[in-house]
């Protein structure tokens, strides 16, 4: 009986220890990686929204979104290696253009069948601002980061517009 209680106590203690350590790791990760990123993003988003830069940019780009060639051009522009890291943070630009396009679809100015290629066209820059951090989270060596950042950015020049074409192919029969 004594032995059983000892074993039970040890097993429970072990599980509680694992859970407690898991909580400690989670808090560590949030404080070291997530919160600093949120602080940075909040600053950038505040600046973009309050100065009107974001809206001006989104207004200019949403004119392109009414046809497939326009969407392709949009993806090419957003996917440029110089622009993509600047447009990435917090997916602010993608969300602003997304909301604008959604409004136009709702108003009947834009074909709802184009919604799928549009979802891909507003987002070729996804994560381009975050490559060094993302690779560091994956324990990458500094040499890998040095190679990985341009590799992802160059790759997006091809796969950004390609994703729009794939989205367009899969939009056949959608809302028609």
């Amino acid at each position: 009986m004594n032995a059983f209680i000892t074993r039970l106590g040890k097993a429970v203690g072990n599980v509680v220890g694992v859970l407690y350590q898991a909580g400690r790791d989670a808090i560590d990760m949030v404080i070291k990686n997530v919160l600093p990123f949120i602080a940075f993003i909040a600053f950038v988003i505040g600046l973009i929204l309050e100065t009107g830069v974001g809206e001006a940019l989104a207004d200019g780009l949403s004119g392109l979104a009414s046809s497939l060639p326009g969407l392709l051009l949009l993806a090419v522009i957003i996917g440029l290696p110089v622009l993509s890291p600047l447009l990435g943070p917090g997916a602010v630009i993608a969300q602003i253009i997304g909301v604008l396009l959604g409004t136009e679809i709702g108003a009947g100015d834009l074909d709802p069948a184009l919604a799928l290629p549009a979802l891909w066209a507003i987002n070729p820059q996804v994560g381009c601002d975050f490559i060094p951090v993302g690779l560091a989270l994956g324990d990458a060596e500094p040499e890998t980061v040095e190679v990985g950042v341009p590799a992802v950015l160059f790759s997006r020049m091809i796969t950004g517009p390609l994703a729009v074409v794939i989205g367009w192919l899969f939009s056949f029969g959608l809302y028609s």
Binding site: Q95, I97, G98, L101, I105, G108, P112, A115, I122
Partner: peptide
């Protein structure tokens, strides 16, 4: 946190009742 990448365009689809 980035729901409106999808949610923005979705809003138009729901508006049309699709």
């Amino acid at each position: 946190g980035e729901f409106f990448v999808w949610g923005g365009i979705l809003a138009g689809i729901t508006e049309l009742g699709l």
